[in-house]
């Protein structure tokens, strides 16, 4: 079955088995190593990608539901301006993620900041509850995310001027 979809803002026509998992296709067919499927049940958040700008666990998405949708992975997101601002703020605040959760958490934080502003602590906690790794203190992370939101806002204002 030929499946047409957008991967990292590029059109793709892939002849794949519709029952294949998106995480397997992204790793095996496209060589995107940031997609780490560890639990295969959507609990760990290691394989998080953006499907139509919403964070989803790629290990729970079958190829038949990917038709005509847009998939963004860490490889694309890490090249955006906003992402650079986010990582700079997180580093400055001392939030260093481990290799197990880094990609999943950064994608979740990126989508959280891009989709809903302003953020309450409860919203941040709920959004990150899909990533089970506790390598970073939550209070520090929540503070860093709020700072990142502010610096992105400031950057946008400066651009307009």
């Amino acid at each position: 079955m030929i499946i047409r979809f957008m991967l990292n803002n590029m059109k793709k026509n892939l002849d794949a088995d519709p029952a294949d998992k998106l995480s397997d296709v992204l790793r095996d067919d496209f060589g995107l190593q940031s997609v780490n499927s560890c639990c295969n049940t959507g609990r760990c958040g290691g394989c998080t990608v953006l499907k139509d700008n919403l964070p989803v666990p790629a290990c729970m998405v079958r190829m038949f539901s990917v038709r005509n949708s847009s998939i963004l992975t860490y490889e694309y997101i890490s090249t955006t301006k906003e992402f650079e601002t986010i990582t700079n703020v997180l580093e400055a605040m001392g939030c260093n993620f481990c290799d197990f959760c880094k990609h999943g958490k950064l994608i979740t934080i990126y989508s959280l900041i891009m989709n809903s502003v302003p953020l309450t602590e409860k919203e941040i906690y709920e959004a990150l509850s899909g990533n089970i790794c506790n390598c970073t203190d939550f209070q520090t992370l929540a503070g860093a995310i709020r700072l990142a939101v502010n610096s992105i806002k400031r950057g946008k204002r400066a651009e307009r001027k």
Binding site: G42, G45, V56, M60, V61, E126, S129, G130
Partner: peptide, 9 residues
């Protein structure tokens, strides 16, 4: 019933 990233699908 599920974490937010799973609820998206």
């Amino acid at each position: 019933c599920a974490p937010p990233n799973v609820r998206n699908i």
